[in-house]
Nucleic acid binder design. Structure first.
Lengths: 205, 205
DNA sequence: TGGGCGATTGGCCCAAAGGCCAATAGCGCC
DNA sequence: GGCGCTATTGGCCTTTGGGCCAATCGCCCA
């Protein structure tokens, strides 16, 4: 575990603001990485530990909303807190519909900002806990798990996959064991936390 | 079924705007009820059919956000689409965090408005479908269902409730039958749609 | 007071899910 | 070639979950 401390990725073209945010966040015990543009962030080596994004809306090149869209496409993306100076209502609403954790306006109150970051990191923790447990599953185990969670009986899954019911039982048991789920309902909820690239349940524009 | 057509409740203190919205919505085939204030809406006989709210933010007396908070407290509330003239970003973000379906600004494009209403009604349909199926459950059946969904085995539920495992089986079977769930995972998802007074998963301010 | 409904329980039996031990086969790596 | 991991399958036995029929009891309503 080289990454015990959560990392806040600050993406804002205003250098002085970045520095100010870094100071604030560091004193709270977070690791911070600043980027002057979305491109710079995208160029960074992928990160999949605990953390979140603190993202400016208006930036030269790729703007905040566009970056959000790109990142949200894959499920492994970090929760995003927007921080913007001259945003309008439609932009902020869109960002929220796309799954942003919060949308703050500059100048933001330190307490609000830290609260939003905490909320984002909490969300990330939940995400990671689920993914971590699902990560050790083999492809076949994951496949069986999904069918189980859809409500198919072992017999049906076996037919669907062209294998024996016995084998299904084995994969199913391993999936339960590896994920640590102690009941079917628990597995159902865990699996739900899996694939969800789409934000909660709101309509997409 | 006296209420086949969905009802859009328009709450706005601007009478002429209300009339315009009514015209637009009626031509789309919706039933419309207009109110000049939140109080007027609250005074109306409770409605639990298909429908949604089209709500102005700034109004004398109880404002839109406050009404949303009151309504959101109970799970039976209708989905809300905000429509506001001079809203600022924090207000709109709060509304979204509280579970609003959308937040439009005046003057709103007809197409956007109708799209938002459609999304809200769709959400309502899902809500209703779940509640309708859960409505016929007796208190005991519902109680057992919740424990089942939490992952307890029949034997444990029996001990918890101080009754026989046999009885638990009966309640469980009835719950499945009444809700139409054909598998445990299905029941889990159905029950999740039940109690949720809290908006999806975002942080509450 | 009789009927209907929900809560409880029993008995019987069958189907589904899980646990344990063992064995074979294919693949990639040391 | 051998080791380790995953996929598959078999057999056997136990635990759970469900289905069917039947019976009591308490309560509320016509």
């Amino acid at each position: 575990m080289p990454e015990a401390r959560p990392v806040v990725f600050v993406i804002d073209d205003d250098a002085s603001l970045r520095r100010a945010l870094e100071r604030l966040l560091r004193t709270e015990g977070y690791a911070v990485e600043g980027f002057a543009s979305a491109q710079a962030y995208l160029a960074r080596a992928p990160y999949d530990g605990p953390g979140c994004l603190l993202l400016d809306l208006a930036m030269p090149g790729i703007d905040g909303l566009e970056l959000q869209q790109r990142l949200t496409r894959d499920a492994a993306s970090l929760p995003i807190v927007f921080l913007s100076g001259h945003a309008n209502v439609p932009e902020s609403v869109n960002a929220m519909k796309m799954g942003a954790v919060d949308f703050l306006t500059k100048p933001a109150d330190d307490a609000d900002l830290l609260a939003a970051v905490r909320a984002a990191l909490l969300q990330r923790d939940t995400q990671l806990a689920a993914r971590e447990r699902l990560a050790t599953l083999s492809a076949r185990e994951r496949e069986v798990m999904h069918l189980v969670v859809e409500g198919l009986r072992n017999k049906e899954i076996a037919a669907r996959l062209g294998i024996t019911e016995k084998t299904v039982k084995v994969h199913r048991a391993r999936a339960m064991e590896k994920t640590g789920a102690t009941s079917l309902p628990e597995l159902v909820r865990l699996a739900a936390e899996d694939s969800p690239p789409s934000p909660p349940d709101r309509a997409q524009p």
